[in-house]
């Protein structure tokens, strides 16, 4: 398999707090890609999630700022209340456009803009959640030749979101939560 990936985008909703705390610590300290995450959240303007993840992760976890350059080996979380977009010059933009699928941040918005910026060099991951945000985004990533992964609905706290992504028939791999990091690592190591 190819190994020229430049970034990972992840979308997660209901059940996300636990899922992220289980999975993200499994990425090693020297992980070479940026991981950009939209987690739907109700409360805007608090950094509780970032702080809590930072305590358990080997990689640095931070909120993504507007105009910030995307750097490898960092986990970026979309701020509450804003859409997170990836620019072609590999910086972040934020926007307060209408919610998409009732959500802001929206997974679709991140995935679509990231797929335009990274093209085939993008890995998209859909985790647990109770709506179908991210399904359009997964299709876009696939159409640009990227790699797509969904959490195995059986292993998901809420199965609706990964199931909806899988139903688009554009998901390459369906994996249990704990296996996603090691799977991505093998993909990156393959030459």
């Amino acid at each position: 398999m190819r190994n020229d990936f430049q970034a990972i985008v992840m979308g997660v909703s209901a059940g996300g707090f636990n899922a992220l705390h289980t999975m993200l610590p499994l990425f090693p300290r020297d992980f070479p890609l940026p991981i950009i995450i939209v987690q739907h959240r109700i409360s805007e303007n608090n950094t509780f999630l970032e702080e809590s993840l930072n305590r358990v992760c080997q990689l640095t976890v931070k909120e993504s700022n507007e105009k910030e350059t995307i750097n490898p080996g960092i986990i970026y979380i979309a701020p509450g209340g804003y859409h997170l977009l990836v620019e072609k010059d590999l910086t972040f933009s934020l926007s307060v456009d209408e919610p998409v699928c009732y959500s802001r941040p929206s997974i679709d918005v991140l995935f679509e803009t990231a797929s335009l910026a990274f093209g085939p060099r993008l890995i998209g991951v859909i985790l647990t959640g109770a709506n179908d945000d991210g399904s359009e985004g997964i299709k876009k990533i696939k159409s640009k030749g990227g790699l797509t992964i969904a959490q195995d609905p059986e292993s998901a706290e809420v199965e609706i979101m990964p199931r909806s992504a899988i139903e688009t028939k554009t998901v390459d791999f369906i994996l249990p939560l704990e296996e996603i990091p090691s799977f991505i690592l093998t993909v990156l190591e393959d030459s």
Binding site: L85, V86, E87, K88, S93, D97, E112, T113, L116
Partner: peptide
Amino acid sequence: YASASVSRR
């Protein structure tokens, strides 16, 4: 304007 957003709109 920031391109990603303009292009979406």
